[in-house]
C-alpha cells in the first residue's frame, strides 16, 4: 500500500464511529459521578454555592491545558488521522504517552512516524496505544477501591491527619512537576513558572483582602495566561 493511502482509512467515517464508543463511556462516567457528588454534597450540608464554585473553577482551569492538548492533537492528526488521534487524546494517557506508544507500535512493524509510515504502521500504532493504556485501567479496576482503606489505616483512626496527607501529597507532586522548569528547560519555562507563582500569590492576597471569593475560581486561569505571556517575552 502507498504511504499516504492509509490516511484515507485513518480518516474515514466508520473509524470516527469506532473511536467514539469509549468517549461515550467517559461522558457517562463523568455525569454519573457528578450527579452522585452533587446529591451527597447536598446531604452532607455543602452549600450549592460551594459546589457551583467547584464546577466553575474546574471549567475555567481546564480551558488552558485543553488548548495545549489541541495543539498536540492537530500535529498528531497529521500522522494518525483525525478519529484515532482525537480518541487517544480524549481518553487514558497524555500527549507524551500517546506519542511514545504510537512510535513504538510503528517501529515494531518496521516503520517510523517520521518516515515510511504505512497502513501496517498505523495498525501497529493503534494496537500499541490501546495495549499501553490497559495497564492503568487494569490496575485501577483491581485496586482503586483499596486505596482509601489503606489511607484510613495509615492514619490509625486519627482522621484529623487525613488533610495533611492530601495537602502534603499536592505539595510533593507539584514540586516534582515544577522542578524541571526551574533547573534545565530554558529561561522561558523558568519565567513562566515564577510568573505563575507570583500572580497566584498576588491574586490570593487580593481575593482575601477584598473578600472576592470569585477571584479564587479565576486565579489559576489568570496565572496561566500571565505565565505564557511573560515566557513569550523571553523566547
Amino acid at each position: 500500500m502507498q504511504e499516504t493511502d492509509y490516511l484515507k482509512i485513518a480518516n474515514e467515517p466508520g473509524l470516527w464511529l469506532a473511536c467514539s464508543f469509549i468517549i461515550l463511556v467517559v461522558i457517562f462516567q463523568a455525569l454519573v459521578f457528578m450527579k452522585k457528588a452533587w446529591k451527597s454534597g447536598e446531604e452532607m450540608g455543602l452549600a450549592k454555592e460551594q459546589m457551583k464554585a467547584a464546577i466553575r473553577s474546574g471549567a475555567i482551569t481546564t480551558i488552558g491545558p485543553a488548548i495545549a492538548i489541541v495543539i498536540a492533537l492537530v500535529s498528531l492528526m497529521a500522522v494518525l488521522g483525525g478519529p484515532f488521534a482525537w480518541m487517544r487524546l480524549s481518553v487514558i494517557g497524555s500527549v507524551p504517552f500517546e506519542l511514545m506508544a504510537a512510535e513504538t507500535g510503528a517501529e515494531v512493524v518496521g516503520a517510523s512516524m517520521g518516515d515510511g509510515y504505512t497502513a501496517e504502521a498505523f495498525g501497529g500504532s493503534v494496537w500499541a496505544c490501546t495495549l499501553g493504556a490497559l495497564g492503568w485501567l487494569i490496575f485501577c479496576i483491581l485496586f482503586a477501591d483499596k486505596f482509601d482503606v489503606i489511607r484510613k489505616k495509615a492514619v490509625r483512626g486519627n482522621d484529623a491527619m487525613l488533610p495533611i496527607l492530601s495537602v502534603a501529597a499536592m505539595i510533593g507532586a507539584f514540586a516534582y512537576f515544577g522542578a524541571p522548569y526551574l533547573t534545565n528547560n530554558g529561561p522561558a519555562g523558568t519565567v513562566s513558572y515564577l510568573t505563575g507563582a507570583a500572580v497566584m500569590l498576588i491574586l490570593h492576597f487580593v481575593a482575601k483582602g477584598l473578600k472576592a471569593h470569585w477571584l479564587n475560581e479565576w486565579a489559576l486561569g489568570i496565572a496561566m495566561v500571565c505565565g505564557m505571556a511573560t515566557a513569550m517575552l523571553c523566547v
Partner: peptide
C-alpha cells in the same frame, strides 16, 4: 508557541498556593 509554556505556569501557581499554607513543607 506560547502554549508550550502553560504547564510551568500551572505548576508554579499551584505549588505557590499550597506552599503558602505550609511553608516548611513547600
Amino acid at each position: 508557541q506560547a502554549f508550550n509554556y502553560i504547564l510551568p505556569a500551572v505548576f508554579g501557581a499551584v505549588l505557590a498556593n499550597f506552599a503558602l499554607r505550609n511553608l516548611k513543607l513547600g
